[in-house]
Amino acid sequence: MGFMSVPSSGGDFKVFVSYNAKAGRWYTKNDGKDEPMFEVTDMTAVFDMPGLETGWFKFSSGVAPEKVMDPSLAEAAPNPGADFKRGFQIDLYSEKNLMGLREFSSTAGIVIEAMNNLYDLWMAAPENASGKLPVVRCSGVLPISNKHGTNYQPTFEIVGWTDRPAGLAGGDTKSAAPASPPPAAAPAAHMPPPAQVSASVGAPVF
């Protein structure tokens, strides 16, 4: 079972591919109501990197995740409320391994780190300028131990490049530009305070 529940198909929801960080394994299902989850044994797919989006996610058991997406990678949306966490979502495509188009999203820190690494690889690759999309493989997992126990961080590598598959809609390139300059480069920009969500007392944490 993945770390998020898969909503029933139909409506505006895409079928998910999920990553279980506790097990270091990928899961998806066929498109259709009450389809069972199955493990993705070869996690190789076309990643729609230009369409990568970030935002606030709230995963609750048994219901579709609530999302408030950022206007761009460089500008975060206001936190919509308690229990929302920062995360990302991206479309993946592989007829052979994923049964078609799948949406991958996560708010797990170690998964975000892995996606950040992949994002940097994609940005730095000369093939990126060609407009082709990367074919990405999860080549392994890396155990990360902290106070939450041991979780497994996926390791992504770009194994090829391809034209945008017909089954991967969009082509939105709004996020293709780097979100920000690299560290220690130009002077940093002053970050304004976020829009106020509440003036109430801060939530107890930990």
Partner: peptide
């Protein structure tokens, strides 16, 4: 000046 850490990795 409030600056965001851009690339923690």
């Amino acid at each position: 000046g409030v600056y965001r850490l851009e690339d923690p990795r």
